[in-house]
């Protein structure tokens, strides 16, 4: 509490725009990647910025105050989560407790869920119910892997995990926790809502789910939400498995590498049914994570 001052506020302001811009950049690049896989030229890499700017310039509708509240809460919560992600070895708040990150992320989802449910469109709620059901699938493997690392280092601070991997490729957790990495890659795909776990959006099925009633700036905030989500989740994986980074461009490159993998999978996969998706997550990601945790636990005994 003592270190709250003007400088910290400025830094946080900077970090909030950093997280949004990085995410938007990735979204544009991701569309480019998908386009190249489909042998298209694709949009310019800054397309997501144009989209968001345009969305904010449009007029929009709201159904009630809960919708406004929820939408603001969602992006706010996720940006607050982004503050806890160490960026290139720098934790702006001085703390990067992974339990906070995992729980604080939920407030973003809760806000989004609340906002779009308040629109009164059943498609939105169906999308949310699918997203939450899927959450039950991917959170557990992630937590198990985090706990495996926590067993090794006796700390649940993300920065500790990142600094522990310094000094070359061989120290990266990819090689130390290979099963865990596989599990988290599968979970990550579900976390981002990319194929084969894109039940939440499913445009042809439930009219883009949560986004069905979002217009203008609401949709713009929805895009920013996805952008910050990208920043947070890729940052999480880079810090957990890819050795963090000491310089900002290496960190960004690693983040993009994670997203690139995800986009490649997304471009060539079809969608599971919801219960198949959850079962798949538990069966594969869950088993791998459990094995990893078990192995680590035995090592610690």
């Amino acid at each position: 509490m003592s270190n709250i001052n003007g400088l910290l506020s400025l830094k946080l302001l900077g970090f909030s725009f950093l997280s949004m811009s990085v995410g938007l950049l990735f979204m544009g690049l991701g569309r480019k990647v998908t386009a190249r896989i489909q042998r298209r030229l694709g949009p310019p890499f800054y397309q997501a910025f144009l989209d968001v700017f345009k969305a904010f310039s449009k007029s929009s509708i709201t159904h009630n105050y809960v919708m406004d509240l929820g939408i603001i809460m969602s992006l706010g919560g996720l940006i607050a989560t982004a503050f806890f992600i160490p960026f290139a070895g720098y934790a702006v708040l001085g703390s990067s407790s992974i339990v906070i990150i995992l729980y604080l992320m939920s407030i973003g989802y809760l806000g989004m869920a609340m906002g779009v449910s308040a629109s009164g469109n059943p498609n939105a709620t169906i999308g949310i119910s699918r997203a939450l059901a899927l959450m039950l699938g991917y959170e557990i493997p992630i937590v198990m892997i985090v706990m495996a690392m926590m067993l090794t280092y006796g700390s649940s601070d993300l920065l500790t995990f990142a600094t522990a991997q310094q000094g070359g490729f061989a120290n990266w957790h990819i090689f130390k926790y290979p099963l865990g990495f596989l599990a988290i890659e599968i979970s990550f795909q579900a976390m981002l809502g990319e194929a084969p776990y894109d039940h939440m959006i499913a445009p042809a099925e439930i009219a883009s789910g949560p986004m069905v009633e979002l217009s203008g700036k609401y949709l713009g905030i929805g895009f920013l939400l996805h952008a910050v989500q990208l920043y947070v989740e890729t940052g999480l994986i880079v810090n957990l498995f890819l050795g963090g980074a000491s310089t900002w461009y290496v960190f960004l490159l690693k983040q993009f590498a994670v997203y690139f993998t995800s986009m490649c999978i997304n471009a060539v996969m079809a969608r599971y049914r919801i219960e198949q998706g959850i079962a798949h997550l538990w069966k594969y990601a869950g088993t791998l994570a459990l094995l990893q945790l078990f192995i680590t636990r035995l090592g610690v005994f």
């Binding site: 509490m1 270190n3 709250i4 506020s9 946080l12 302001l13 909030s16 904010f56 310039s57 449009k58 007029s59 929009s60 509708i61 709201t62 159904h63 009630n64 406004d68 939408i71 603001i72 809460m73 992006l75 706010g76 919560g77 996720l78 940006i79 607050a80 503050f83 806890f84 708040l93 001085g94 703390s95 906070i100 604080l104 407030i107 203008g216 700036k217 713009g220 905030i221 920013l224």
Partner: peptide
């Protein structure tokens, strides 16, 4: 600090929200 970060982030988003185009109920 957690509360402060959250309040600040919400304030940023609120600013964005106010700056965006007009809304209609």
């Amino acid at each position: 600090i957690t509360t402060f970060a959250f309040v600040l982030a919400v304030a940023v988003v609120f600013l964005l929200f106010v700056l965006g185009g007009k809304k209609k109920k």
